[in-house]
Simulated assay, not measured.
Amino acid sequence: MSQPPVRDPDPQPAPEERCRNCGVALRGPHCHACGQPVKGLVRPLGNLFGDVLDSVFDLDIRVFRTLPPLFAKPGFLTREYFAGRQIRYVTPFRLFFFLTVLTFFVAQLTLDGPSINFGDGDAIARATTVAEVEKARDAKLAELAKLKQGMVGTAAATGIPGVEAGAQAVREVAAERIAALQQAQAAGVPPPAADRDGENTLNVRFNDKAWDERKNPLDTWLPGFADRWLNAQVARASNNIARLRQDPSAFKDAALGAVPTTLFVLVPIFALMLKLAYFFKRRLYMEHLVVALHSHAFLSLNLLLVLLVRVLALWLAPDGGALATLFAWIEGLLIAWMPAYLLLMQKRVYAQGWPMTALKYFVLGTCYSVLLSFAVLASMAIGLVAM
């Protein structure tokens, strides 16, 4: 009688894999209870760097489908977004964030720092006649005017309000010096000596007198601790003027460094302005916000191209010539493309007639330019205190 075949023992079932965070049995690459991934976060540095690029900048193949229409097709990306074709392009906020940070980082590396006069100057302070004061004043104003002209149409244009404020400070200091010299002449006494202590301070006045932390401090309607804080900030900014005189690039870095933060605040405000301008279009605020993000992303991209053209011109045509002329034409065309692009974008997205579009474009542009100037000045003042 044959023996029955010997059966191999049944294999032991594999232990059930459980989430290391909450202990629930796993059914896939992520825990369905707490959401923790099965793969640990202790991975090679290259993988983590890729995660940062993907989560923060979302840099993948979509960037190559996004940048060309962003630059060359006004309103195209916005209309694609409204039509529901969104996943094929970089999202509006990530596009704006990446281009803005990159553009003004490149601007800090490539632009030279101008020397800005924030108050009194040696020539005006040492002048002993009215004619000498006027000569020194006119020379400083001409220098600032030349500097302002060179900023127009570039990323450094955000510093124009600071240049204008410096010019106004020069006029005020010159007027004070002229008044002091005329009073001395009328009294028959020698011209007053230059105020050497004021050369590295802000030209701040309170109660028609020069600000002084002890003798003439700010005294507002705010509580005492707030006034003390304000006076401390004015003193700190005043002391930082000495650093700015020794390191002019610090002013450029403060101005350009303030722009991204300023734009992050102003983009929602610009979207609100669009909402008011196109109130009867009955569009959601988020739609106007997408328009604002795409328009600011384009401006950052265009400024980045202008900076790159300037770098190429300095590298390939440092001595001028036909190649330098070509680069100058390209830069001019890029600058001219900015207002034309924004006008075409507004027309195509909101689909109104040309007269109404042009009117709203002019009003929005003027109001936003004024708002941007004040915002940049405020950011520069904060940066001057915080540096």
Rank of each mutant, 00 (worst) to 15 (best):
F82I: 13
T103Q: 12
G121V: 11
F93I: 09
L109W: 06
G121D: 03
F96A: 13
F82R: 10
F98L: 08
V90E: 04
D120A: 15
N117S: 11
G113H: 05
T103N: 13
F93P: 14
A107D: 10
N117H: 01
R94E: 06
D112S: 07
T128E: 13
F96P: 15
G113L: 03
S115T: 04
D122H: 03
R94F: 07
T91H: 14
T128R: 11
Q86K: 13
Q86Y: 12
R126D: 15
F82Y: 09
G121M: 02
I116H: 01
Q86M: 11
T91F: 06
T110K: 02
F97P: 05
P92W: 10
T100V: 13
V101W: 09
T129K: 00
F93M: 09
F98C: 07
F98R: 11
I87K: 00
L109P: 10
P92N: 03
T91V: 01
G113V: 01
L99P: 10
A83F: 04
F118L: 09
I87F: 11
P92G: 03
L99Q: 09
D120Q: 08
D112P: 05
A107E: 06
L99N: 09
T100Y: 01
F97I: 06
I116Y: 01
G113R: 03
R94Y: 06
F82M: 13
V90M: 09
V90H: 00
F93R: 11
L109E: 14
T100A: 12
N117K: 01
A127F: 02
T128V: 11
Y89N: 09
T129D: 03
G113A: 06
D120C: 04
T103I: 02
T128A: 12
V101T: 13
V90P: 10
I116D: 04
P92K: 05
R85N: 14
F96S: 13
I87H: 01
A123D: 03
Q86W: 11
P114S: 06
R94S: 05
P114V: 10
V101P: 06
T129P: 05
A125V: 08
R126M: 10
N117L: 15
